[in-house]
Write a protein that binds this DNA or RNA. Structure first.
Length: 521
RNA sequence: GCGCCCAUAGCUCAACGGAUAGAGCGUAUCCCUGCGAAGGAUGAGAUUGAGGUUCAAUUCCUCAUGGGCGCACCA
């Protein structure tokens, strides 16, 4: 990674034990990369930041003259670095050599990480809210895989309990019915029994297999594990969990119910494990599930939650601590709810009222690429408004096409080049790539591993979207200004390598984002 | 009442405490006998308000305003 190379030679010059931050410069006039170390050292060293910057500049340029073409100290104390074309050309070679492996990192060290997402109750179709979390989880999973984590994607199915009973009532159509929709009507056509729980369980199974799983497939997501809540009851895991808590003296009885002393671990209320009626709460099985994950050897758990489940975080963390696991090893990603608008007015989305837009509908209307891109553009914590009509209308203007179009341009250039038979020399001279446009494109391409790193570290797949659009714009600029297939054969050959590298990075990106890489548009 | 999240251009969204707050759409003007114009160039256009911390604040802290979501022996 270019960034790390710079950081490494700075560490020697700085000498203090501090994290040296290197920033990719958006504006070329601030170098290819820049750092603020001098500004941050100013106080502790009691010197003028510019003075420090100059000092570092001289040290670095004497130690590593080959890495940099120019180093500049700029007010109020930044140090800007311009890499030599050679460094960028070498990185280009790496891209061409590593191909789809370019951008693979070692930071994950093959550690096991579990990502649980969607996990919508099997009581109805997946909504656009589930879509948002689903796409985000899927892309994060791929980013982490690229960063060398061993990722398991998991969907937790609440296939028992109160909601399933309510589903049963709904299918039976009795006075306790809560879920509404065409799918309920259909389920009603083949019921063989009267017991709400039994009906609910069968209906849940049908919904899972015939509605949810196909929708997930349509979304382009593959789960490694569909984890059944019911299985935790069958294996007595829930019972054991409660017993263990009792043994640890972390439970008590109050008003006929069994409570977990979650307040001892930072929760603001104690929580019920077994209701007065003897039924266990979802929370009880959630703890069993949590322990199950840790026991399977996942050092880190990522759990996606809708904002309406926010209150769950503290109690889950409390449960983890009660069993000696560190709460820091559970990362919750809160997905803000998507508000549904119709004709500018908010429609309350609810499976209970039957008013919602399913993710299937959206994908059918706008296509998978546009749907994925749309949700991945915004960070999970923004509150989104969603209007299906507007989405339909605007789908053709989705930035995903901007990116795909840029990629398609690479394809058509390369297609054309094969017809012309350019390659005559065995040795392609990449040194010819030295115009500002060449340099700029190369440095953006070389940024790809850095983007993977930040996305993986911060659990922030949105970074990839931004980079995709940056790269697209950079490439379009390049295309506009530089002729690729031209008179000079060596230059043409070298430029074609650059196009190949661009194509590789685009393919990598699209692959992670789960959008298609069209040959033509 | 308490807690969490959000507020950026006409619209949908960006911005790792950093340099001139970026894109897309929309909008005004221009560029196809040229590797695909689903493109490019040049404009107009924004940080909710008030304090504070910092060399530097859209970003952190406090308060206010406006939205969303929680606060069950529901999930």
């Amino acid at each position: 990674m270019l960034k790390t190379k710079i950081a490494d030679c700075l560490k020697k010059a700085v000498r203090e034990s501090m994290v040296v931050e290197i920033f990719f410069s958006e504006n070329e006039k601030f170098g290819h990369y820049s750092t603020n170390v001098a500004l941050r050292l100013a106080k502790s060293q009691g010197k003028n930041p510019m003075e420090i910057a100059e000092g570092i500049k001289h040290q670095v340029s004497s130690v590593k003259p080959k890495l940099f073409e120019k180093i500049e100290a700029a007010a109020p104390g930044f140090i800007n670095f311009w890499l030599t074309p050679k460094v960028l050309q070498n990185e280009l070679k790496e891209i061409l050599k590593q191909k789809e492996k370019y951008g693979n990192l070692k930071s994950g060290k093959n550690k096991k990480i579990n990502i649980e997402f969607i996990s919508a109750n099997p009581t109805g179709p997946l909504t656009i809210g589930n879509g948002r979390g689903g796409f985000c989880g899927d892309v994060l999973a791929k980013v982490l895989e690229k960063a060398d984590y061993k990722v398991a994607r998991e969907y937790y199915i609440n296939d028992t309990g109160e909601q399933i009973k309510k589903l049963g009532h709904s299918v039976l159509g009795d006075e306790q019915a809560v879920y509404k929709g065409d799918y309920i009507e259909k389920l009603r056509e083949n019921i063989a029994e009267k017991n709400p729980m039994g009906v609910g369980e069968k209906a849940a199974k049908t919904i899972l297999e015939e509605i949810i799983k196909p929708a997930v497939k349509k979304m382009g997501i593959k789960f490694d594990n569909w984890f059944s809540e019911k299985s935790l009851y069958k294996s007595k895991a829930v019972e054991k969990t409660i017993n263990e808590l009792e043994k640890k003296n972390l439970t008590y009885k109050k008003e006929e119910a069994v409570w977990f002393k979650s307040t001892e671990f930072g929760d603001d209320k104690d929580r019920v494990l077994i209701k007065a009626g003897g039924e266990k709460t979802y929370f009880a099985s959630d703890i069993a599930y949590l322990l199950n994950k840790f026991k399977r050897g996942f050092g880190k758990l990522i759990i996606f939650l809708g904002a309406d489940h926010y209150g769950y975080i503290d109690r889950i963390k409390a449960a983890a601590e009660a069993f000696g696991y560190k709460k820091e090893n559970i990362a919750f990603i809160i997905i803000q709810l998507v508000r549904l608008l119709k004709e500018g007015k908010e429609v309350k989305m609810s499976k209970r009222t039957g008013s919602y837009v399913t993710i299937d509908e959206l994908i059918d209307e706008v296509g998978l690429d546009a749907a994925r891109f749309f949700f991945l553009m915004s960070s999970p914590d923004t509150h989104m408004n969603f209007d299906l009509d507007l989405a339909k209308e605007q789908s053709l203007k989705n930035p995903v096409y901007y990116a795909q179009y840029a990629a398609v341009r690479c394809n058509s250039i390369l297609r054309k080049s094969t017809k012309i038979n350019i390659m005559t020399s065995d040795v392609i001279n990449l040194k010819l790539l030295n115009t500002p446009e060449d340099i700029n494109l190369m440095r953006v391409l070389a940024r790809f591993p850095e983007v993977i790193e930040t996305a993986a570290e911060n659990y922030n797949p949105q970074a990839l979207i931004r980079f995709t659009l940056d790269l697209s714009r950079e490439f379009n600029n390049f295309y506009e200004k530089e002729k690729i297939i031209g008179e000079k054969r060596d230059l043409t050959a070298a430029r074609l390598e650059l196009i190949k590298a661009t194509q590789i990075v685009f393919k990598n990106l699209f692959n992670i984002l789960g959008i298609s890489f069209p040959e033509r548009m």
